[in-house]
Write a protein that binds this DNA or RNA. Structure first.
Lengths: 242, 242
DNA sequence: GGGGAGAGATGCCGC
DNA sequence: GCGGCATTTCTCCCC
C-alpha cells in the first residue's frame, strides 16, 4: 500500500497518524499564515486535532483544534491535505511533495494528569496559614466567585478590616496590581465600606510594580510557591536501580 | 536493531525521534505531575525539545523545552527515559513498558512562518488610517516603547489633545482597560499635562467592561480585525483542480 | 456560550 | 538577564 492510501485509510478510520513530510502550509482563520516548503512532523489525532511541528521549538507552527475534518487529494506526485473546522471557520491546506515516513496507529489511554504546585495550592496554603502573611490575620474564604470577581483569599485583620490577598506564583506585575485594585474597589462598593486592604503575595516583585502597589495603598508579602521536590536523591536512586 | 538501541542511537545522533509507546510519566520542576500508564505519542527534536501527547487535545500533556538532555536505561523489558534541563532545574522520567513504533529521522527545514492578521497589523492599520477611529485624528507614533510598556498608537485629536489608542483583536476586557488607564496616567505624568484621552479599539466589548471604560473617561470604537480571506472561492478552485 | 483568570503558559522584542 | 505584552493563545470553571 502506498503512502497516499495509508494516509487515506488512517483518516477514514480516525486513527492516530504520525507523518513526516516535505510540505508547504497555508492557514486561514483567526489569522492567515503561509509556511514555505520544508520537512515537518505532522500529527493527526483521533479527535480531529492537527499539529504540525518544525524541527525546533516546543510550539506547533500550524495547528487545528479537535473536530477538524479532513480531505485528501493527489495529483502528479503531490498530495493535498485539506483541513476544515466546521464551527470555527478555519481552514488549512498542506501541500505534500514527499512523505518521509507515515504511521497509523490505534492507541489506548484513559489516564488523566495529576498536577500539583499551581496557584491554587498557593492560595490553599494561605487559607490554612494566614499568619504567614500577617500576624493576626484570619482567613474567611478562598477562591470566592462573587458578583465582583474571583478573590484568591479573603481575610480579616487584627483590627477587623477586610483584606484581599492576591497571590502569584511568579513575579507580580502591573496586571496583578490592577487585579487586586479591582477586587478591593468592588468589595468596597458591594459592601458599602471603605476599610478594605489589599495584599500581594508572591516570591518576587519588580521595583516599578512595587512602587505602583504601594502608591495604591497595598503591600507586598514575600511568599515562595510550593516547594519543588528534591531531585538529587531520586537521581541517585535511579542510577543505582539500573 | 531493537527499539532500545534505535532510541539510544537516535538520541546520540540528535535526530528527530517519533515514538509511540505505553508509558507512565513523572515531572518535577516549576510544578510536579504524574501521569499513569497509557499509550502516548512522544516527539524528541534535534534541539532537545521533548513533547508528549495523549490521544486527544492540542496541548502536550508533558513537555520539556529545548536544550533538554536525555539519558536512557533498560531493565527487564522496561525502558527508562530521563530528561533533565540543566538551566531550568526541571526533570522528567518516562517509564516505557512497551514501544509501539519508533522512527529516527534527519529532517531539513529552514523556512519561517509568515503570519498576517495579528494585533500589529491592526495598529498598523490605525496608524495609516486614524480617521477610521475618530474624525480629525492624526497619528503620531506606533508601538512606542516607554518605561512602563508600549503604546499601540499615539495620536493627536482635532483639539490638540494627545490620544492613546489601545487595540485588541478580540473582546476588550478589564485588563485592556487597566492597560489603557496606565498608559494615559503615565503620559500625563511624564509630559506634565492633563488633557490626555484614551480610546479602546476592538471588534467587541462586554457591557461590564464598557461601563468601567466609560467611568474612566475613555471611549470604545468598534474596529474589526484585519479581514479573513474568503475561503469559498478557493475551495471551489481546489475541488476543480483534483 | 460568554466572561474571567491561570498556565509547568510560550515567544518576541527592547533595554 | 528582566520586563512588558501578544498569542490562530489554550484550558478550566462558573454563570
Amino acid at each position: 500500500m502506498n503512502h497516499y492510501e495509508t494516509l487515506k485509510q488512517g483518516l477514514a478510520k480516525k486513527e492516530t497518524i504520525l507523518l513526516t513530510a516535505k510540505c508547504s502550509i497555508e492557514y486561514n482563520g483567526r489569522a492567515q499564515s503561509y509556511l514555505p516548503s520544508g520537512d515537518r512532523i505532522i500529527l493527526i489525532k483521533p479527535d480531529g486535532t492537527l499539529l504540525i511541528h518544525q524541527i525546533t521549538g516546543s510550539v506547533p507552527v500550524n495547528y487545528m483544534k479537535e473536530r477538524t475534518e479532513f480531505q485528501i487529494f493527489h495529483k502528479e506526485g503531490i498530495i493535498a491535505l485539506q483541513a476544515k473546522h466546521p464551527t470555527q471557520k478555519e481552514y488549512m491546506d498542506v501541500e505534500i511533495s514527499e512523505i518521509h515516513s507515515i504511521q497509523c496507529l490505534k492507541l489506548e489511554d484513559s489516564s488523566k494528569l495529576q498536577l500539583a504546585g499551581n496557584e491554587k495550592d498557593m492560595s490553599d496554603f494561605i487559607f490554612s496559614n494566614p499568619e504567614t502573611i500577617e500576624k493576626g490575620l484570619k482567613a474567611l474564604s478562598r477562591e470566592e466567585h462573587t458578583d465582583f470577581g474571583f478573590v484568591d483569599v479573603l481575610c480579616k485583620d487584627m483590627k477587623g478590616n477586610l483584606v484581599v490577598v492576591e497571590c502569584k506564583r511568579y513575579t507580580a506585575d502591573y496586571k496583578a496590581v490592577s487585579q487586586l485594585q479591582r477586587y478591593v474597589d468592588k468589595i468596597k462598593e458591594a459592601k458599602g465600606i471603605s476599610n478594605v486592604r489589599g495584599i500581594m503575595a508572591s516570591p518576587t516583585i519588580s521595583d516599578a510594580t512595587k512602587k505602583i502597589l504601594e502608591e495604591s495603598g497595598f503591600k507586598h508579602v514575600v511568599l515562595e510557591p510550593p516547594k519543588r521536590l528534591e531531585r538529587a536523591k531520586k537521581e541517585q536512586k535511579k542510577l543505582l536501580e539500573f
